[in-house]
Amino acid sequence: MSLNANALVDEAGSTDPIGDGPQVSTGRGRLVLKRFLRNRAATIGLVIVVLMFLSAFVGPDIDQWKYTDIDFENFQTPPSGAHWFGTTQTGQDMFALCMRGLQKSLIIGLVGGVLTTAFAALVGACAGYYGRWADRILSWFIDLFLVLPSFLMLSILSPWFRGKTWMILIPLLAAFAWMITARIVRAQAMSLKNREFVSAARFMGVPGWRIILRHILPNIASLLIIDAVLNVAATILGEVNLSFFGFGVQAPDVSLGTLIDTGQQDIGSYQWLLVFPMACLVVLLLAVNMIGDGLRDALDPNAQGAKSKVRRPKAERRDSTPVLTEPVTVEVD
């Protein structure tokens, strides 16, 4: 997805022009950032994800143990100064394993989520913009993939990709996750198609593929960005699910899913084997979802949460809920 937030401008960023020349308004990118940072949960989410990235990729270098190392003096020891997260039955360092798993989750999540959304955007936009037979064929594919039981399909395919690189999981997970987004994009593209600026481009002789890339997709960019973030969480969870049941990442490599699988067998006596990978997963998903919520509020000009507020003394506040059936439109421009 080559959509950058600076290229997005909508009503949220508009200010009144003044004098003869247009006034410099707060740039779209900065405005979104401002609104995003105003949301405390989203900021915390962002900080957590950045920290997890750092610890997943830098952490293993600081830790003296690699995930393949075996400490013959410590089998199933609880967390300590030498082994921050404790060790496993075979003496592997739990912290190193968790970070290894986290690396995988982060890469699969990010690449998979973006890939899912990009594919969905392309299919949906083509179906919606071209209409007629293109729409019929593409919609048929969307419906087909929607009715396929994705988990079952992936577990059936599992023997085929066993032994190959775990990267293969990314396109496979994406292949079963794009349909809903594609449907939403299709509907959006259909309504955008009737907007005047698209007609204007058409009457100027701009070819269809260019209209899709230059007009349709950038105009649903906010939707796509939010969707991509939520797809990141979904893809991470998908991989963990597969690995948990033994269809995803295979030993000797580890992922959060396989760690949780082995950890849950000893939950009674060796809690740290389950608690740490589980905590990594839960915190990561929570943080990603918090970012998604924050982005949605920041990109949606009508979201209440992100608007600037002025505090007023309580006594002055009038309750002004409209009782008439009309929506209140206020002209402040």
Partner: peptide
């Protein structure tokens, strides 16, 4: 409508 006929993102 000049707002509708100009792509707001360009």
């Amino acid at each position: 409508d000049p707002m509708a006929s100009l792509d707001p993102r360009m």
